[in-house]
């Protein structure tokens, strides 16, 4: 059974920048560390004139969307789809 959760909360993220690519390794939300096994899709969007990046990532527990704001350099967890 899937569970869908809209979150939009700030998170700490571990990111590797290598060979011009950005890869998310994990993030910490509500004191729990989520290791990421797959970076599936990177989407670029605009908030007004500010570019933002949406990372669709997953591990064996579920799929997550993380959002990076380029004006403040803040990361947010946007949504989780749990695979129970």
């Amino acid at each position: 059974m899937k569970r869908y959760e809209k979150v939009h909360e700030p998170v700490n993220v571990v990111v590797v920048y290598k060979a011009g690519k950005t890869r998310i390794e994990g993030f910490k939300w509500q004191n729990e560390l989520y290791r990421i096994s797959r970076n599936n899709l990177l989407t670029k969007a605009q908030k007004g004139s500010v570019p933002i990046y949406l990372f669709s990532v997953s591990n064996d527990k579920g799929a997550y969307q993380l959002r990076f704001e380029t004006d403040t350099l803040d990361w947010f967890l946007e949504e989780i789809i749990w695979e129970d």
Binding site: K2, Y4, R38, N40, L41, S56, S58, I81
Partner: peptide, 20 residues
Amino acid sequence: TAEQQANPFLRGKSMGVGMR
């Protein structure tokens, strides 16, 4: 397929896009 790319749990499944 864009949603399947973002979420691998949806791949190969009977799914669609709409207002959840």
